[in-house]
């Protein structure tokens, strides 16, 4: 795995609160990085990855604060990171906000679209709420009689 892909995976783990295993298990990690490259361009993607790699190695509250101020609170990177979270959760790239386009220029590929048929199926939102995508990945006859299986939250620092 390239350093670039590793950084993308690390960033995605932090943004989605799902594990590397979960993210790689969707089979879509490479395609989502390619989506980012295609929609906002390699340059902005690299800036986002560089900002993530340069984060202080702090844990818990300090780390979360650093992600907020350096990435989510950044004028250029914040909206891109939020679109990436939505991409992982729904398999859909959502067009960036008007304010972002006015400030940084619109991109021809930046429209709202579903990345691929399996991207919809592998959206993290289904796992997060213990449900399944309608028409795909059926959970089996009678499964509705059991409580939904919701994954435990990853361990955050107790102070967080």
């Amino acid at each position: 795995m390239s350093n670039r892909f590793e950084a993308f995976l690390g960033l995605s783990v932090e943004l989605t609160a799902f594990s590397r295993f979960d993210l790689l298990g969707t089979g879509l990690a490479e395609r989502y990085l390619a989506t980012l490259d295609k929609v906002v361009g390699v340059e902005i993607t690299d800036t986002l990855l560089a900002a993530f790699v340069a984060l202080p190695p702090a844990e818990g509250e300090a780390r979360i604060k650093a992600v907020r101020t350096t990435i989510l609170g950044n004028e250029l990177l914040g909206d891109v990171a939020r679109a990436l979270i939505k991409l992982w959760y729904s398999g859909t790239w959502f067009e960036l906000p008007l304010a972002w386009m006015e400030r940084f220029g619109s991109r021809p590929a930046d429209t709202t679209f579903v990345v691929s048929p399996d991207a919809y199926v592998e959206g993290l939102l289904w796992k997060a709420i213990g449900a399944h995508p309608a028409g795909a990945k059926a959970p089996g006859f009678g499964s509705w009689a059991f409580p939904p299986k919701i994954p435990a939250l990853p361990e955050l620092d107790s102070k967080a």
Partner: peptide, 18 residues
């Protein structure tokens, strides 16, 4: 039955991980 479908999901994840 639901356990078998859960196995499908886990097997898919195991197989997609490098």
């Amino acid at each position: 039955v639901p356990t078998m479908f859960e196995f499908r999901n886990t097997i898919l994840e195991l197989i997609r991980n490098p």
